[in-house]
Design a protein around this nucleic acid. Structure first.
Length: 134
DNA sequence: GCAATGACGCTCT
DNA sequence: CAGAGCGCCATTG
């Protein structure tokens, strides 16, 4: 194997997504131990030749839409597979992330009290860019 | 080892 | 809400 760390971890994380649920690339990256490695997740999935038990179709981008791929037919396939799992798409081809997003840790014992909507305080407020010219 | 790529994400305009 | 730009990170040439 060329490498059995990052990719393996990513596949593992993707395999954790329950049926009828979806996860974003960034989320999978985080679960796989690669924060901000959303692109790597997509890269790893692209390298995935076959299913191999990895539900790649359950991984979508943060916009709740299927990421554009070189082969448009795969996009339709992914959408069809998600629909067959009970997921509904909007006229624009987008789904409700708030409704279908997989919650790592919630697959086991239910977590009734825990809104944990978004604790992303951004540990790196480097926002020094501020291209606010003039 | 450096430069380019890429199934992404966030912020600003 | 939609579009455009920069940033991230690992793999490949």
């Amino acid at each position: 194997m060329i490498s059995d760390s990052t990719y393996q971890r990513i596949y593992r994380a993707v395999a954790r997504i329950p049926r009828g649920r979806v996860a974003t690339y960034g989320q999978i990256a985080e679960v796989a131990g690669i924060p901000r490695g959303a692109r790597q997740v997509g890269y790893a999935l692209a390298a995935l030749r076959q299913d191999k038990g990895v539900p790649w179709h359950r991984v979508i981008n943060a916009r709740g839409e299927i990421s554009a791929r070189a082969e448009p037919e795969f996009e339709g396939l992914q959408r069809a597979m998600l629909q067959s799992e009970g997921i509904r798409f909007d006229p624009q081809g987008r789904l409700s992330l708030e409704r279908y997003r997989w919650r790592p840790g919630s697959d086991g014992p239910a977590k009734p009290s825990k809104p944990v909507v978004r604790s992303k305080s951004r540990a790196r407020p480097l926002r020094a860019a501020a291209p606010k010219r003039h």
